[in-house]
């Protein structure tokens, strides 16, 4: 379990995290929030890369400040900005990381991971020839070496094309079990597909913590959909301002989903994206 109590991090005047209380069990847990919400800072504190300014965090009972080495031994980490070594092949890269993780006889595990993430065929190729999706898959494979009890994945689908993104989410779905997996992302679809529970971070604070269904339930009956003719779109959207959640282009105009009742609109079951946007905006 990952537990944070009053966790705060300040960079000079900037308060990246403002006293976070959070509990993450053995599950695939989504950490959702807009850019700059403090997700990466939280992940980095848990990964023992950054010390918190105040508060406390523990990973499977180990303190992130005092017990850095024990935490690192049970951790798998895929950072937001991930780069592999261009001179190594995919297989060599995994072997190199296995040496650093002090895994004895890692070959079987490497081959299994290469196969699991569909990299066997390209394992002999240098990583410079890999696509963004292949690199991310190699990244998650290295994070899983040694079968870590805690896996931190920071913005894993950023920069991937839609097909790779869907594929990558499918991989993430299968990573839970008896492992704590924290998926930090600003993409609602990532969380919707892979996680049952999530926390929404906004401006360094937890805006919501619970199940995805619970978040949707919060805004049940509060989201309305209305058709807007094309010639009125600009004017209406300006007038409605932050109440607008999403817009979808149609043949004769747009379908607009909004927070709160609107004349001519009908109540709809909110999607996770609607609920998330409504939460952030309210």
């Amino acid at each position: 379990m990952i537990k944070a109590e009053g966790l705060a991090k300040h960079y000079g005047q900037v308060r990246a995290l403002r006293g976070i209380d959070l509990e993450i069990r053995a599950e695939v847990f989504g950490l959702l929030g807009p850019n700059g919400a403090g997700k990466t800072t939280f992940i980095r504190i848990i990964a023992t890369l950054l010390p918190p300014t105040s508060g406390k965090a523990t990973v499977l009972g180990y303190d992130v400040v005092r017990d850095r080495i024990p935490i690192r031994k049970i951790l798998g980490y895929l950072p937001q900005e991930y780069g592999a070594y261009p001179k190594l092949t995919g297989r060599e890269y995994l072997e190199y990381i296995a040496i650093l993780k002090e895994i004895r006889r890692p070959k079987k595990q490497i081959e299994a991971l290469l196969s699991q993430f569909h990299l066997t065929e390209v394992a002999k190729r240098r990583v410079t020839s890999y696509s963004g999706g292949m690199l991310r898959r190699l990244g998650i494979a290295q994070a899983l070496l040694g079968n870590p009890k805690v896996l931190l994945v920071d913005e894993p689908t950023g920069g991937l094309d839609p097909e790779e993104r869907v594929r990558f989410r499918e991989f993430l779905m299968g990573l839970g079990g008896d492992r704590v997996v924290v998926l930090s992302t600003h993409l609602v679809e990532d969380v919707a597909m892979a996680c049952e529970r999530l926390a929404v971070l906004s401006q360094g604070e937890i805006a919501y913590q619970g199940t995805t269904r619970g978040l949707i339930q919060l805004f049940q009956g509060k989201v309305y959909e209305v058709e807007v003719p094309e010639e009125e779109v600009k004017e209406r959207l300006t007038a409605w301002g932050k109440r607008v959640l999403t817009t979808k282009r149609e043949d004769a105009g747009r379908t607009v989903r909004m927070l709160g009742e609107i004349e001519g609109g009908r109540p709809v079951t909110p999607s996770l994206e609607d609920a998330y946007l409504a939460l952030i905006r309210s």
């Binding site: 890369l49 080495i69 690192r72 950072p79 592999a84 993780k101 002090e102 994070a143």
Partner: peptide, 12 residues
């Protein structure tokens, strides 16, 4: 350019 060392935080 590649931030290769950050990954190593998950090793002893």
């Amino acid at each position: 350019a590649r931030r290769t060392l950050e990954v190593l935080i998950a090793t002893p």
